[in-house]
Amino acid sequence: MWLALIWLMVGALGIVLEAALASSIPAYWLPDLSLLATMAAALVLRPMQGLLVACLLGLGADMVSDALVGQHAFMRLFEWLVVYALAGQIEFRRWRRQAVAGFALLLFDALGLFALSWFFLGSFSFVWTELGGWLLRALATGVFAPLVIGLAQLIGRLLSEQKARRELQLRTRRPVL
């Protein structure tokens, strides 16, 4: 529970930081932090908590974007599902796999957002030359994927260690029967 809450806060902070940076650095060079936080949530958190965190992070991304409210949240749910399903099949501990997953998910996200915009807003044309920008952002997202997942795992490990210590203390004070 605590891990989910802390991760939600970290993800929200990441979204706001990304938006603040986007006014100085082109968005193509920035990793999609809410997507990476969703990825980490699927790998580190319990399924129910991870799903809720993914949806809330998506809504957070909607906040800093001119997209329809719910558009990013919709995509984050599917991205959580993809990572959750893949984590059952593939070992995600290797940083290379995490990076490739981050890269692929960003492209999936961009296509999904385009499809939703086209469906709900209309008059959205697909521009092939924009693919270069997507690839740049996908690369940045891929590079940062192991770092973000590593951070989530570290927080998880620290919290579980604290919990184990507490349990140990309780046991030592137990009266001898």
Binding site: I15, V16, E18, A19, A20, A22, S23, A27, Y28, L30, D32, A61, V64, S65, D66, A67, H72, A110, L113, F114, S117, F124, E130, G133, W134, R137
Partner: peptide
């Protein structure tokens, strides 16, 4: 003051 920009690849807006 511009305090933020759209981080989405599909929309271009300023905060």
């Amino acid at each position: 003051e511009v305090v933020g920009q759209d981080v989405s690849l599909w929309f271009r807006s300023l905060l």
